[in-house]
Design a protein around this nucleic acid. Sequence first.
RNA 1: UGCCCUGUAGCUCAAUUGGCAGAGCGCCUGGCUCUGGACCAGGAGGUUUCAGGUUCGAAUCCUGGCGGGGCAACCA
Length: 757
Amino acid sequence: MKNSQTSTPSDFIRTIINKDLASGRHKKIIVRFPPEPNGFLHIGHAKSSTLNFGLASEYGGRCHLRFDDTNPETEDQSYVDAIKNDLRWLGFDWGEHEYYASDYFETLYEWACILINKGLAYVDDSHENVIRLTRGTVTTPGVHSRFRDRSPEENFELFQAMREGEFADGACVLRAKIDMAHPNMKMRDPLMYRIRHTTHYRHGDQWCIYPFYDWAHGQSDAIESVTHSICTLEFSTNRILYDWYLDALDINPRPRQYEFARLNLDYNITSKRQLIALVQEHVVDGWSDPRMPTLAGLRRRGIRSKAIRSFCQSVGTTRVDSTHDPVLLDHFIREDLNHLAPRIHCVQDPLPVTLTNWPENHVEKLTASYWPHEIPKEGTRELPISRELLIERKDFSETPSKGFRRLTPNGIVRLRQGYIIRCTSVEKDGQGHIIRLLCEYIDGTLSGENTSSLKPQGTIHWVDAIHSLPVIVRVYDRLLSDTSIDEDLWTSLNPISLVEHRHARIEPSVADDLSDQRYQFVRLGYYWRDPESMDQSSTPIFNCIVPLRDSSHKSTSDHSNEIKQTPKKIESSTPQRTLTTLEKQWLQRSGLPRSTGLAIYAVDGAIEFFQAAASSAPRVSVSNWMANHLLPALNERKLSDLPFGPYQFAELIQLADNEVGTAHEIRMVLKLMFDSNVPPAQLLSDLQDSMIDDPEIIKPLISDVLNEFSDRVTAYANGKVGLIGFFVGQVIKRVDGNVNPKQIQELVSEELARITS
RNA sequence: UGCCCUGUAGCUCAAUUGGCAGAGCGCCUGGCUCUGGACCAGGAGGUUUCAGGUUCGAAUCCUGGCGGGGCAACCA
């Protein structure tokens, strides 16, 4: 079996953590999983919790479970319990680190008072609608509230009165005083507290003011000493506020927020609102309906948490919006169950078969293995067979299409773990429907004791008509008939997302098995007893966990010659953005090409720097080196903070232009200049002294490389020209970069030409 | 139309930070098999969104274009 998660995952979050650990910013990482207890966890939460709990165990840190329960109107203890249950089922352990944002209300209140004191927060009596309207739009600034300039003393008194219940719901709010014209809407005096005279499931009527998400979340992270606060992408615009609050409170060291893409599944619904609608309209059988993407639903379908964890790990962590194909989940479910589920027989849609040459009333008890040969497990069960059998209706065809590998009139087929049979006759009712097959079994063909040389068309599953047990089998399909909802939820629903086989029959061996036993129904899929209808019905109900892969379409399919589309080249002169007058003037004045000109224009002080440098070195070279090397290397630094000025930079450029140094060397010198004030010419000559340029030294190195990678030399000779870069890179690596790549490139080319000619 | 994020195989992700464009799933072919499963072997599939630029060398750096997503709740 292939193991798809042997390699440790690498993603941008782990890269950040590695860096933080290496730099000593953190000795130990603390992350958190912060659900709001207002609904059930779904597959998306599985991704988030797998990430967070996974990070904690990988890095020997810890992951807190924190209930983000700051809105008393929607939250409830029953959700807390359900969430904890789901997380434990997923296999996560938070030990004693179970926290509630609502337990921090007192601290949050005190911190709000600090902001009021600093003049950074104010009580606003404006009506809800007024606040919304005066916030402005993404393109127009907002307007200051007329309560914005209340004194800290007045604000403090009002805020205390808010807490003490002196105002009705909605009478006023506490807002942070930031910037009503900020380009990020979240910074336009965001709300911190609202008044709600509602009973909180955890704190009763102790509070009537409740903090908003932004005011509660970062501060809760800080209280718990969280180092990396990982949330989904839609919160990225909140990050600036997250940081602003922590700055305002002088919290240090402080948590940092990182965002990743939430998990979307094709053919599924992930919106909480729509999931509620399905439950309320009884389209599904509650939150745990096996078609639901909730953890409760997946669990009831019979999927084990291991499969879900594998799936979540395999989808990775990125910042790219993406939707996943559920076939990937299916794959991990099958991989998990393959070695776990004994093979048994169940006929979902029975067609009676009479073995005409089988003695009446004779019953034979076959001993049948639970496992196919390649699974190293032992175990058998008794499989009764008599004159009357049942096979799958789909396993017989009077008019078989090409490639049909099952029973046909006069054809032979093997009853799995039993005899080979031949169909001799077909019985039909008045309407022409097949109601029974008459077959003959062939003596001497019993599984394992076959003495015949017959080659059956295929192997089919079956059960004995008398000894088998009646069961109801539920087979689930996708909730949506298309990958996503188009326009309306109700018309997008898959009408056959549930097929119930009410007349299915199963072999008798399962009668006393444990209720959580999972089986593979041979040739159908993986199944288990529906845990929620265990005693309601005398007829056991089985859920299909996942069907087997089905490649029956392969042999009959005929789309082998699909049209290969030739990529079209769209030729068009790319439109360019219209420049501001100042930009135009600058380009005209400098005579620089658009791209380099704009790069220089965009950086503070770069124009002056350029003009000064260009007075003693060629303009084009100066602009190229600035735009492509100097300015990008600046990062956070400013031009004025560098240990060198434009004239030294110009000296460097001249060294390049006069070919005193190669482009490669000049780049290395530039890097050195960022941390030294030695003149460029000096740096260059020092560097060149340490460079290896003697062909007699280099050539043997090249031969070594080409010998070591002789297979790649062959590939190169066969046309894989791109390998030249690989060879050059290898040589450079061996001398720690102290060579001129251009020279190496030339020498390697010569050598390759010599070898391969 | 402001700010932020984001484009690599059909899908989801890698690419040692400027040096061979790879993996898993899916698909196809063959092998094996008493499961049209599993397993084994192989294959197809790429102008790295596009156009320029810098470089011996660009998925990676620079400029611009095009596309996708998020933000204007007294929700989180």
